[in-house]
């Protein structure tokens, strides 16, 4: 069987990466079976699996996962869009920065959970307030990263476009936006992380579905397997969603210095150009 070296390295990396989780789970299971941890506080992994398999087979688990993911995606999309648009505007127009940025910065220093009562008052405990809260959490990192990415575009690159007499929109489209993409992606990933944080906060505030609701149910019904299982599910979902962004990032930003190995791209003829003068 022939496997490309890069694929083999990927498999190796994954295998190494799951060593510690597997060891932890096995230890945990063994210790639980020997009664080291009281099972009403920390259930064994097998018990958690059983509970979740049961919930999976009667469908309630998928409804919870679905509810959480829909909230997260909607909140992320709204928050990220607002962050991108406002960040871009403030990045492009200095006057707008003076106008808007001080306000945004002061709003940013409000602990986001402080919004919860207000949102509930305005929008009830339905989906609206939850999605808004998540969007608020996602907004700030995306806004900041976009603004900085656009503000600190290399002037030297812009001058190249000026020499070619690009109109302003073309400078933006062909130089400013591509060169600020790495910063924007960093902001998006940070925003997604905060989004997961806020989805839990929103669901703990009162929901009838979702992983946060599952957490709360576990707390109220003394079902630790629900709590631990939900935490594990959060970890998995967070990792998967970040992985999706990373794949996208790699696709779009493969040119960026931080990706790939500098040496791998060298041509066969490396050095020949620098050692032999042309035309001689």
């Amino acid at each position: 069987m022939s496997v490309s070296p890069s694929a083999r390295r990927l498999v190796q990396r994954i295998l190494v990466g799951i060593v510690i989780p597997v060891v932890v789970v096995v230890l945990w299971q063994v210790l639980c079976q020997h009664g080291v941890f009281p099972s009403d506080l920390l259930p064994a992994p097998s018990a958690i699996c059983q509970a979740f398999v049961a919930m999976g087979s009667n469908g309630t688990l998928w409804a919870d996962v679905d509810a959480t993911c829909v909230r997260l995606v909607l909140g992320f999309v709204f928050g990220a869009l607002a962050g991108l648009v406002l960040g871009a505007l403030v990045g492009f127009f200095e006057t707008l920065e003076w106008l808007i940025d001080p306000m945004i910065q002061s709003v940013r220093s409000v602990p986001s959970l402080a919004w919860v009562p207000l949102f509930i008052l305005w929008m009830g405990i339905g989906e609206g307030s939850k999605i808004t809260l998540i969007a608020v959490g996602v907004f700030f990192p995306v806004y900041l990263a976009t603004m900085n990415g656009i503000r600190y575009v290399d002037r030297k690159l812009l001058e190249v476009g000026q020499v070619f007499r690009f109109p302003r929109w073309k400078l933006i489209w062909r130089i400013t936006i591509p060169s600020s993409l790495p910063a924007i992606f960093t902001g998006l990933r940070a925003g997604l992380g905060l989004g997961w944080m806020f989805v839990v906060a929103a669901e703990l505030m009162g929901a009838s579905q979702g992983l946060g609701y599952l957490l709360e149910t576990g707390q109220n019904t003394y079902a630790p397997e629900l709590i631990v299982g939900s935490i594990v599910l959060f970890a998995i979902l967070g990792k998967v969603s970040d992985g999706i962004l990373r794949v996208l990032e790699r696709r779009l930003l493969h040119w960026h210095d931080s990706f790939g190995n500098r040496e791998t791209g060298w041509p066969q003829t490396r050095g020949s150009l620098d050692t032999q003068a042309p035309g001689h």
Binding site: K156, L157, E159, V160, G161, V163, F164, R165, F166, R174, I175, P178, S179, L181, L253, W255, H256, D257
Partner: peptide
């Protein structure tokens, strides 16, 4: 000016474009 081409001290290539796209940039 239309008639002017500039070569700077640094290459100032767009890092997200291939060599070919960099050359045809303008």
């Amino acid at each position: 000016q239309d008639a002017v081409g500039v070569i700077f001290q640094e290459p100032r290539l767009m890092p997200w474009l291939t060599v070919l796209d960099n050359v045809s940039f303008g």
